[in-house]
């Protein structure tokens, strides 16, 4: 029999911790070595106990889980961090991975996939909750519309280019008109024409086009 996986539970809900502890301790290859109820105590416990895996909730008082990850990694680089959360937003997933988490699993799968996730990250793999993986794949492949061939802005007239830049900077047609000395209606006409020329279907595409061709400075 292989070595037991030592697990630390960090969650502010005592009931959940108890349930998870019972569940994990019931597994032959796992052992819960400690618990923490907020970010700060999680860092403390991890530093003291040096578990193999830290199961970390995002929503905790004092220091939330996402913010705690970098400090945990700093205090104990060998500890694998597995984020257990309610949130299925791509943003959370990205932040967690960026901060150094080894895995991301949803609480609604607490009773099923947590064990597999703990085993995976303990093996040194990365575990991501299956329904979230498509988000990463999408990002990796890029957006479909961005793959379309984009026309060069040289086909635009000077006026159209000016209108494009200002629209991309988030100005209203009226504001663009004021800056260029045109009426709002005229700006609309220019906008329609240049979007047609560049085969752009929305303002968002227009902004991306401007970004790609260096026509937009974000004002930093």
């Amino acid at each position: 029999m292989s070595k037991q996986i030592r697990v630390l539970l960090a969650d502010d809900h005592a009931v959940l911790r108890a349930g998870l502890r019972a569940l994990l301790n019931g597994q032959p290859d796992m052992e819960v070595v400690g618990e923490a109820e907020d970010g700060e105590s999680a860092i403390r416990e991890v530093t003291n106990l040096r578990p193999d895996v830290a199961l970390l909730d995002v929503n905790m008082p004092h220091l939330d889980g996402l913010a705690a990850i970098p400090r945990l990694r700093l205090a104990a680089p060998e500890v694998r961090v597995l984020v257990l959360t309610m949130y299925d937003d791509e943003g959370y997933l990205r932040r967690a991975l960026e901060n150094g988490a080894a895995g991301y699993v949803l609480k609604k799968a607490a009773d099923t996939e947590v064990m597999a996730a703990i085993r995976a990250v303990a093996r040194g793999e990365t575990y991501i909750y299956p329904s979230l993986t498509h988000l990463l794949v999408n990002r990796y492949l890029g957006r479909p519309e961005d793959a379309r061939p984009s026309l060069s802005p040289s086909g635009l007239s000077e006026r159209e280019l000016a209108v494009l830049k200002l629209l991309a900077a988030g100005y209203t047609s009226l504001q663009v008109g004021e800056q260029l000395g045109l009426s709002g209606k005229t700006v609309e006409t220019y906008k329609a024409r240049l979007m047609d020329k560049l085969s752009l279907r929305s303002r968002a595409e227009l902004v991306r086009y401007a970004l790609r061709h260096g026509l937009l400075t974000t004002g930093d």
Binding site: A169, Y171, S202, A204, V207, T218, G219
Partner: peptide, 8 residues
């Protein structure tokens, strides 16, 4: 629908 959030 296009949703944009821009800092200018």
């Amino acid at each position: 629908v296009a949703v944009l959030l821009e800092r200018r």
